[in-house]
């Protein structure tokens, strides 16, 4: 009566093929990747990527917990894409860039710029001659940007992360950490805006993001300033 017997074995083959081809074979190919390093006279140096340590690692957890990866990728594409020419990196990112991360923060959507190399001094988010280009995107710039992205004059749609900051009354000497904000967005007189440890850690993580270390499989690094066409 029943011819349902064949259904389950073939389904099993289909399901196993799916996992095998899209996960297990890539794992066999990439699973044994190790960080890149130089070895001279038994001494290992120039290890890349390194396991992020201390504050940056805490900051990575803040990055994930706040959901930054919902709008920011950490993937620089090569080939015909404009990623390198936009100034988001000097080369495409490859699997080896992520070997030290148990779960990488690759992201899926670019409602904000790619952050693979945001800690690099060469990173930019606008043509080099753009009048809006900030002089420097250093820790203090990032803190102000996290506190009030809209006020940074970049047409950003990033929400404010005010909950990572404290607005408090100045008692005695002002805190050396207090943000130097432009007048329009500064705290009321007698108060100051200070970053919480989470905000500092997050900025330390952003500052640590630099994947410009040359890797053989990523091909030649292109100068980020070369115009595309």
């Amino acid at each position: 009566m029943s011819r349902s017997g064949f259904l389950f074995p073939i389904l099993l083959i289909a399901f196993a093929t799916s996992l095998g081809v899209t996960v297990l074979i890539p794992h066999a190919q990439l699973g044994a990747l190790t960080p890149d390093f130089k070895e001279e006279d038994g001494l290992v140096s120039d290890v890349y990527p390194n396991v992020p340590g201390g504050l940056a690692e805490v900051g990575r957890q803040v990055y994930v917990s706040e959901g930054c990866q919902t709008c920011h990728t950490q993937i620089v594409r090569g080939g015909d894409s404009a990623d390198v020419d936009r100034g988001w990196g000097s080369r495409r990112t490859v699997a080896r860039d992520h070997v030290t991360e148990h779960t990488p923060v690759l992201g899926a959507l670019r409602l904000g710029p790619d952050l693979s190399n945001v800690g690099s001094e060469k990173w930019r988010n606008e043509p080099s001659d753009d009048p809006y280009k900030p002089a420097k995107r250093d820790a203090s710039w990032h803190l102000k940007h996290l506190y009030n992205p809209l006020a940074m004059g970049e047409g950003s749609i990033m929400p404010s992360y005010k909950h990572l900051f404290l607005v408090r009354k100045i008692t005695g000497t002002p805190s050396p950490d207090a943000l130097q904000l432009p007048k329009a967005m500064s705290a009321p007189t007698g108060s100051e805006v200070v970053p919480t440890p989470e905000a500092k850690a997050l900025v330390a993580y952003l500052g640590s993001l630099d994947r410009s270390h040359p890797l053989k499989e990523a091909g030649k690094a292109t100068a980020a300033t070369t115009p595309k066409k």
């Binding site: 799916s18 996992l19 899209t22 996960v23 890539p26 794992h27 990439l30 699973g31 990747l33 699997a95 992520h98 070997v99 030290t100 991360e101 148990h102 779960t103 990488p104 690759l106």
Partner: peptide, 19 residues
């Protein structure tokens, strides 16, 4: 299960998630 194992790291972890 794959994500809970130590052998799955880096980009492979995201491939498992995408799968």
């Amino acid at each position: 299960l794959l994500l809970a194992t130590n052998g799955v790291n880096g980009v492979i972890a995201q491939l498992v998630a995408d799968w």
